[in-house]
Amino acid sequence: MSEPDIYLTTVSPSAVAQAVRSKCPDVTQKSMQGNRLELIVPPSRIRDVVGLLNELISDALPESVFGIDLQNDRYELIYVFWSHLNRMLCQLRVSLEGTVPEVDSVCDIFPGLEWHERETHEMFGIGFKGHPDLRLLLLPEELSGKYPLRKRFKTDRSRLSETGLPEARPGSKEAET
């Protein structure tokens, strides 16, 4: 009986950071607390970095990919990987700009990210180049192209007036959210 082969290699977070930076010098390391590694990756290099992670970390678990709307057409994508063997949490941050931002898809390297990318596409309108299947995943047809998780998408707040409380002052924090 043999051990599963993903047990073979261990690698430390600092070694991963070093390897990534020697291959892609434009990647910057944000912080490293204990076992958490954060790398800021330019959008053009994401495929290289994820491919390198796949080679270095033999048991990388693709936890998630998600977007954040930073308003004014700026978006941030966060890729999270967890390695049980090295007890390492690796976050890759990608900043994007533009009304229809685009980034390379990594779902052929980590198939588990395919649906996460599909969801990010329908919720934020971020395009993934090379993704095989960018249909709607969770949303109904009538919300196609509306990108509901963008801050610009306004929800119905009419029920708040039913409480009998005075309305929040315009411009206050409560009125914004």
Partner: peptide, 17 residues
């Protein structure tokens, strides 16, 4: 004090002062 109204997550309470 209307604290219950503010705490309610589903806007189920209406206060009439």
């Amino acid at each position: 004090c209307a604290q219950c109204v503010k705490a309610c997550p589903t806007i189920a309470i209406r206060i009439d002062k």
